Amino acid sequence: MTGTLITVAPTGAEHAKPDVPNLPVTLEELVAEAKACEAAGAAMIHVHIRGADAKPTLDLRRLEETVAALRAETNLVVQLSTGGAVTDPEADRLRVLDAMPDSASCTMGTVNFGDDVFMNRWEFIVELHGRMRERRIVPEYEIFDLGQLATLHRLLDQHGLPAGEHVHVDLVMGVPGGMPGDPETLVAALRAIPAGATFSATGIGRTSLPVMLASLSAGGHLRVGMEDTVSFARGQRVRDNAQLVARAAEFASLAQRPPLSVDEVRPLLGVAQSN
């Protein structure tokens, strides 16, 4: 690759607003962060939303409002999380697609998630993959452990290519219970990625920097954001999501793979100009 796709994941479902006061949880906060991150080099935004109580929600009306606002105020590729919180039922997670984002996450298996379990049954994965294809929503296949790449091969072999006909994988590394966030594990994962696929890598917490550097060196793309880490450096909290995006953009430029524009990312991923 001659450039780098930078995805920002600004909120997530794990951090509580009282613990992380600068976490963007309202629509106004999210849109402001998105605009700043686009200016700093991001081309795609991975979105979790919060309710009026600042807790995670999959409320369809809020999701639709969020997609509309991000499209009105930015040019970013809008990707909704179908993972939600680990307690969200499958029906609610499937209904996320009714908000018609450009892209959505599609996790390839069940994984221990700290003290919780992030459940993704095979039948649910197949249903999610099929509904995305029907709606022309481009999936990002989330991989939390190496065995989930075998599930991805099984899915593609049995149920065909996704909407856009390009496979893009995000390696989520460093989750307690999932694969480690180190270069050795990233290299092992790359041996099992489908031929012709592109990949991003996400390092959770203190693994964010080693995963970022390993991904760039291996020709991969980057996901950063306060969903994944709220520490910028030892003893230093993240100021905002744009700070993380700017660092990723600087590293990508130093690697002579500068950030890709949104107009370059859409054909790369097979994302339509609008849904």
Results as ranks from 00 to 15, higher is better:
3 G>Q: 12
14 E>M: 13
14 E>Q: 14
16 A>C: 06
17 K>L: 15
22 N>W: 08
23 L>E: 04
24 P>M: 10
28 E>F: 04
30 L>R: 01
33 E>W: 02
33 E>K: 03
36 A>S: 14
37 C>A: 14
38 E>L: 09
42 A>H: 08
45 I>F: 13
47 V>W: 05
48 H>C: 04
51 G>H: 03
52 A>N: 10
58 L>C: 04
61 R>W: 10
67 V>R: 11
75 N>P: 02
79 Q>E: 15
79 Q>F: 07
85 A>Q: 02
92 D>W: 10
93 R>Y: 06
96 V>A: 08
97 L>F: 12
101 P>L: 13
102 D>N: 13
105 S>L: 11
106 C>H: 07
111 V>K: 05
120 N>M: 13
121 R>Q: 05
123 E>L: 10
125 I>E: 00
126 V>H: 01
126 V>Q: 01
127 E>G: 00
140 E>L: 12
141 Y>N: 02
144 F>I: 02
145 D>G: 12
147 G>E: 03
147 G>P: 02
149 L>H: 00
151 T>K: 05
152 L>K: 01
155 L>I: 00
158 Q>P: 02
159 H>S: 03
159 H>N: 07
164 G>R: 02
166 H>Q: 14
172 V>E: 01
173 M>R: 10
176 P>N: 07
177 G>E: 03
179 M>N: 08
183 P>Y: 07
185 T>A: 14
186 L>Y: 07
186 L>E: 13
187 V>F: 09
189 A>Y: 03
189 A>K: 00
192 A>E: 09
192 A>N: 03
195 A>E: 15
196 G>Y: 10
202 T>N: 06
203 G>K: 05
204 I>W: 02
204 I>F: 08
204 I>D: 02
206 R>W: 10
209 L>H: 09
211 V>N: 03
213 L>I: 12
213 L>K: 11
214 A>V: 11
214 A>T: 10
216 L>D: 06
218 A>V: 06
223 R>V: 06
223 R>T: 11
225 G>T: 11
228 D>W: 07
228 D>F: 08
229 T>Y: 05
230 V>Y: 10
232 F>T: 05
233 A>N: 07
235 G>F: 09
238 V>R: 01
240 D>H: 12
242 A>M: 12
245 V>D: 04
248 A>K: 06
260 L>S: 05
260 L>R: 09
261 S>W: 03
261 S>H: 07
261 S>N: 05
262 V>W: 04
263 D>E: 15
263 D>R: 12
265 V>K: 02
267 P>S: 05
272 A>I: 06
274 S>C: 11
